[in-house]
Design a protein around this nucleic acid. Sequence first.
DNA 1: AATTGCCCATACGCTGGCGTATTGATACAT
DNA 2: ATGTATCAATACGCCAGCGTATGGGCAATT
Lengths: 196, 196
Amino acid sequence: MSPNDLNEPGPSKQSLTAEAWAAAALDVMAVGGLEAVAVEPLARKLNVTKGSFYWHFPNREALVKAALALWEQRETVDVVSGLDQEPDPYQRIVNLFKRANSSHKAGRLYLALAAATDDVRVNEVVQRVSARRLAYLEKCYRALGMGAEEAPLWATFAYATFIGNQQVHRDTPHTFPAGPKFREYFKLMLRTLIPQ
Amino acid sequence: MSPNDLNEPGPSKQSLTAEAWAAAALDVMAVGGLEAVAVEPLARKLNVTKGSFYWHFPNREALVKAALALWEQRETVDVVSGLDQEPDPYQRIVNLFKRANSSHKAGRLYLALAAATDDVRVNEVVQRVSARRLAYLEKCYRALGMGAEEAPLWATFAYATFIGNQQVHRDTPHTFPAGPKFREYFKLMLRTLIPQ
DNA sequence: AATTGCCCATACGCTGGCGTATTGATACAT
DNA sequence: ATGTATCAATACGCCAGCGTATGGGCAATT
């Protein structure tokens, strides 16, 4: 969303907002997981001290909550606004896949959050977001003329595949198809996962 | 592997071994991730003090290394020994899928490790294990008569799908197909991912 | 009986992150 | 100019986990 002008150089005498803290929390979460959302390290990264933090938030808990809320809102808005105006259901699924395989950062963030589902609050949010995505996919498949029996299965199948792609791409970047190979791979997935 | 007789009741006056510590480390890792591999909490769980731990290991680092080695060995042995004696390549892939969707614990463990790939040592091991699995899958597809161009793509596709299944199943257990639905889902994946 | 080696308990200091309390600085309003 | 609200710095105590040092129990050996 906001191209973060924080980090090293940061004069940026603009006062920090709570949302800026939440966004920064998501940033580090994408790299270091939930545990990386720590007050003092974050403050250092933002070139302030925790004195600032505890003005905006009562405690670390609140920051995590805010970050999760921000993430959920981003994801939900993304899905609903961007994609739903495409009339063709086939193209809608294609767009979903494109999006999933493009924004690296969002992918890493999802995986980081999904890895922290031992935390109850995280689990709730991840479940909601995943359920929404699944429901959306199912709707697409039904719009393609698929029955109420098959559609959920195909939706789960497709969703699992593109979550798995993010995972595999992150874990073994070397073996993951790249360049022209990727375009082939992409087409293969599409024609396999969208029966018509 | 070993049905852990540790935990609460534990009289078990058998002295602990380094491998027992490593196994316990993997256990907690499957639930709480890499950060959960902490010396003192683990010692409590094993009904000893860290005095024991620091006899077997020089430090936490060594424990993590040992746990990773144990995991890699388990995974590799699993893949090579159990599956490779099946002659039919089709059935081999089926067995792989069955295995992936059966042992919950192993799945959670993989996801936990994959989530900690910011740690260099973890990343190396995960990469090796994933690469081995992918290579194995590719060999299966080639044995099915697939060309050197297509086989890696299908292997990646299949691997991503069953990694994604573990992920989705963990993150949204409610929406994941269960019981008879799952058998349908399973068959759908098989006939889609194994062209013949 | 004494010794040696294996395995673990206890006690200690160190570090990093959490949360609080207090003070400081800048902007804006009056 | 002076006061007030907003945002941040500093200093403090607390806790949990890491690593060390040292000693204790309990075999097996001699």
